[in-house]
Design a protein around this nucleic acid. Structure first.
Length: 444
RNA sequence: GCCGCUAUCGUCUAGGGGACUAGGACGCCGCCCUCUCACGGCGGAAACCGGGGUUCGAAUCCCCGUAGCGGUACCA
């Protein structure tokens, strides 16, 4: 029997890294050696938070990550008739009952029977619908990642599964939707571990077979707290906007809670082949953007020059970046690093007064730079291979350190002290623009 | 409070009773390369939460403690 998986985000905002990892793991399983289907379900029963923009954000994030699905998106809100039908079934069979008990009533019950004793209500003519939990026995399951997990029924409250107006609540809707979609494996975050017994009880009350569960460890920020906006690039869109490559992001987040021996760089195809739910760790992981940066650099450098140029053009919205891309290739870690490093090749020099003062204001920079200008004016052909010996000859002639010749030239053309290789940069800039900028530097 | 989950370098992890002098990766430090910044190469520092058991032997199994996290809504 093929695996049927689902990814079921609630559209309360952008897709965060934790959600992206959950989506990735489900996708990896559905596209792995065993193959299966992936159902996308939008849990939008909370109509106020589930806006069209939020839903679009999630779809956009999944598309950018290149994670596709086979069925859906199914909107939980549109399953209301079916939810209602199941609710009626439980009400009629006596597995659920109406109760007007409030939170205060529950508190009072706990005060009387002990905090560890689950709340039990009394059937009434109206009110919210609660699922009847037996007093005896345990509700347990074999979590693929955590092993046996069990809850004593005695401790469990009779959970509210529908409001007084008949609209169903999350834990009930999830169970019905998973059942209807014939989901075989529920792979989701650990924050749902405590919800599982409630959902299991719904399956049981309906006489249906529950899926297999796997609860992923949560992701934390560097401060050990649950990951949120305050931890920098926490959403998929932010990662994209900061110049990370989708394939690098997939590789990195796959490694948050899972590993394969000593391997660190794993292509998406390798991930699909090697990923195993049983090997997912049980403890929470901390998202470390520095490692993502390093990994992104690895992926960037592995790109063909033409491919890198295309990605940079898409990212910056500028055209004709091939030459700059070629000489900046080994020096950038994200697509966003390109423009600060090589933008001077396309726009004017950067504005870095401190660099100009320090490098061009120094004694002796003038005469050397004048010689550089003369060498540049006569170099033929005007390419890196011929520029290098011509400029190094000046270094030789004066017995100075190479940087004393190259840094003033760099600041003159780039406006700052950091750039791709100086000979390559000059070649790409071209003779006219280079001489123009060197003259401007000499004239100041 | 109650219910539940978790615990190896700063971080991600390998490890599943003897192969552990605890391995790899990021980061950090040093050296090399070098026109800047990177890239790359070489080397280094850096961890089994604590206490009891079980066992000839425990990072690995059990118990207790501690800490962190999650849940505890007529939210999802």
């Amino acid at each position: 029997m093929a695996m049927r998986l689902r990814f079921a985000p609630s559209p309360t905002g952008a897709l965060h890294i934790g959600g992206a990892r959950t989506a990735l793991y489900n996708w990896l399983l559905a596209r792995g050696p065993e193959a299966g289907q992936l159902v996308l379900r939008i849990e939008d029963t909370d109509r106020e938070r589930s806006t069209a923009e939020n839903i679009e954000q999630i779809l956009e994030a999944l598309r950018w990550l290149e994670l596709d699905w086979d069925e859906g998106p199914i909107f939980q809100s549109q399953q209301a008739p079916r939810h209602h039908e199941a609710l009626l079934e439980l009400l009629q069979s006596g597995r659920a009952y109406r109760s007007s008990a409030t939170a205060d009533d529950v508190r009072e019950w706990k005060a009387r029977h002990g905090a560890e004793r689950g709340f039990r209500g009394r059937a009434e003519a109206h009110g919210a619908v609660r699922l009847r939990v037996p007093d005896e026995g345990v509700t347990s399951f074999e979590d693929v990642i955590r092993g046996p997990v069990s809850f004593r029924n005695w401790h469990l409250d009779d959970p509210v599964i529908a409001r007084a107006d008949g609209s169903v609540l999350y834990n009930f809707a999830v169970a019905i939707d998973d059942l209807d979609a014939a989901i075989t494996h529920v792979v989701r975050g650990e924050d749902h571990l405590s919800n599982t017994p409630k959902q299991l009880l719904v399956f049981e009350a309906l006489g249906a077979q529950a899926p297999i569960y796997a609860h992923l460890p949560l992701l934390h920020g560097p401060d050990g707290r649950k990951l949120s906006k305050r931890h920098g690039a926490a959403s998929v869109q932010e990662l994209r906007d900061q110049g990370y490559l989708a394939e690098a992001v997939r590789n990195y987040i796959a490694l948050l809670g899972w590993g394969h021996g000593d391997e660190t760089i794993l292509s998406t195809d390798e991930l699909r082949r090697l990923f195993r739910l049983e090997a997912v760790s049980r403890s929470p992981a901390v998202f470390d953007e520095r490692k993502l940066r390093w990994m992104n650099g690895r992926y960037l450098r592995a790109l063909a020059a033409s491919e890198l140029a295309q990605r940079l053009e898409a990212f910056t919205g500028r055209q004709g970046l091939a030459a700059g891309a070629a000489i900046a290739h080994d020096k950038i870690q994200t697509l966003a690093d390109f423009w600060p490093l090589a933008g001077f090749l396309y726009d004017g020099p950067a504005d870095d007064p401190a660099a100009r003062e320090r490098v061009l204001g120094a004694e002796g920079a003038g005469p050397l730079l004048a010689e550089v200008r003369d060498a540049l004016a006569t170099a033929e052909p005007f390419d890196a291979a011929h520029l290098e010996p011509a400029l190094r000859a000046i270094v030789e002639r004066h017995g100075v350190k190479p940087k004393e010749v190259f840094q003033p030239l760099r600041v003159a053309i780039a406006g700052t002290t950091v750039s791709p290789g100086i000979f390559e940069s000059v070649e790409v800039l071209g003779r006219d623009r280079t001489l123009e900028r060197v003259e401007a530097a000499l004239a100041r």
